[in-house]
Simulated scan of single mutants.
Amino acid sequence: MTDDVLFLSGDQVTGLLGLDAAIASQRAAFAALGADAADLPGKIMHPSRFDDSVVFAYVSRLSADTGAVAKIGSVNPGNAASGLPTVHAVITALDPVTGRLVAVMDGTPVTTLRTAAASAVAIDALSTPDSADLALLGSGTQALAHARAVARVREVKSVRVWSPTPRNRARAAERLAADLGIAVRAVGTAEEAVTGASLVAACTLSATPVVRGEWLAPGCTVVSVGSFEPGRHEVDAEVLRRAARSGAVVVDDPATAAAHAGPVVEALREGRLAYEDLVGLGAVLTGRSLPRSGPGDIVYYNSVGLGIQDAAAAWAVVEAARKAGL
């Protein structure tokens, strides 16, 4: 049964799925979602009763010629202290015609790359063309991936990095400066990182806001990927208020965000935001929504992660593996 099944390690996945391919896969994923041309069942996010971990399960299908993809994994916030990714997962891909198993791959690099790539797609669609100063909240695997991905769609000139541990943010700044060849500086507070930035990427697992609306410069685009369940709030209410008033609150999928994205769930519950105010990234990519009316608008993008992202990225990996003769 397994003679013709691809088994791909994390290193193999990383080698097969470069940033440009990952970004292309996410454009395809959200364009399909915006055109209502993909299968996207609801995802499972289940906080453990035993510790602070969260188990998740996604199932989706991108197109008729790519089969169903399933991902199961766990978010373990304590891993950050050990220098490990906080998300680990495994992905399976099935044949589009027979349903037979096609591939099993390490889902950790897929998750990292597709999340950062989707944020790059969002920034490319939502931010002003001259956005060049990036505030990076977080210093882990996902934060580093975000800085690299954003640099593929914008000519980033400087990065300010903040995370709670001075050693971690200093190390992240050093690595990014070497990778990107630009000025990267570790700063002592989140406010110092965000103030004056045209791009803000929040890549934390914080339950309390690390980005406050009063800090945002006119025209700023804020991306948040850590508010993936109702109890996590990387941004405060003022961020959403400013975005809803002048620009837009953009999400990966309105129905999913309304159930899972902490700041969005809270704003809907308190009546500060209506469901109709949520703009899907797919609607932006397909031209059905124009969230920015002027260069001074504040735009907020919240991603909780969707199975369709994994489906697009996983099949990009499978195709690359086939071309490589694996």
Rank of each mutant, 00 (worst) to 15 (best):
E238Q: 09
A64P: 01
G287E: 11
T14H: 11
N302K: 13
V304C: 12
V304S: 14
E155N: 02
L17I: 02
I298E: 02
A21D: 11
P263S: 04
S53H: 10
Q26R: 09
A244G: 09
S131K: 05
L16Q: 00
H46I: 08
A202P: 02
L306I: 04
W315M: 07
S53A: 10
E270N: 05
V110L: 14
V194M: 12
D51W: 09
I298Q: 03
R148N: 04
A255E: 07
A183D: 08
S25N: 03
P164K: 13
F50K: 14
F50S: 15
A21L: 07
D36E: 07
P230K: 09
R114D: 01
V97K: 08
G307W: 07
V90S: 03
G15P: 05
P109Y: 14
A177V: 12
A258P: 08
T14A: 14
D95W: 00
H46E: 11
A149P: 07
M1L: 05
V225G: 09
V210F: 02
L62K: 05
L176M: 08
G196T: 13
A151E: 03
M1S: 05
P218T: 11
Y301S: 05
A143T: 01
L33H: 02
A173D: 02
V235H: 09
G247A: 06
R100T: 15
L113V: 08
S131I: 03
L40F: 08
S206K: 10
I72V: 15
A193Y: 03
T165P: 00
S198Y: 07
A143S: 01
L8D: 06
A261D: 07
S163L: 08
T195F: 08
A149V: 12
G287D: 12
T108W: 13
A151H: 03
V150P: 01
E238Y: 04
W162T: 15
L62H: 11
A261G: 09
W315L: 10
G213D: 01
P166G: 07
L306E: 13
R152N: 09
L285C: 02
P41G: 04
A243V: 00
V90Y: 02
S63F: 12
R61H: 11
D4H: 13
T221Y: 03
A29V: 07
G188D: 15
T204Y: 11
R212E: 08
G15R: 11
T66M: 07
V97L: 09
P291R: 10
T115Y: 00
R27A: 02
S206I: 06
P164Q: 13
S227T: 07
D253V: 14
D3M: 05
R322I: 14
V299M: 00
Q142E: 06
V264G: 01
F56H: 04
V187N: 12
V90L: 04
R322L: 09
P85F: 06
A173I: 10
L101H: 11
A93I: 08
E266R: 15
R242V: 00
A243F: 08
A32L: 10
R232L: 10
D39S: 13
V87I: 14
Q142I: 06
R269P: 03
T92V: 13
T66N: 04
T141D: 11
P109H: 15
T141K: 12
L17K: 00
I182P: 00
A243R: 04
G305H: 03
A147G: 01
R185H: 13
G213Q: 01
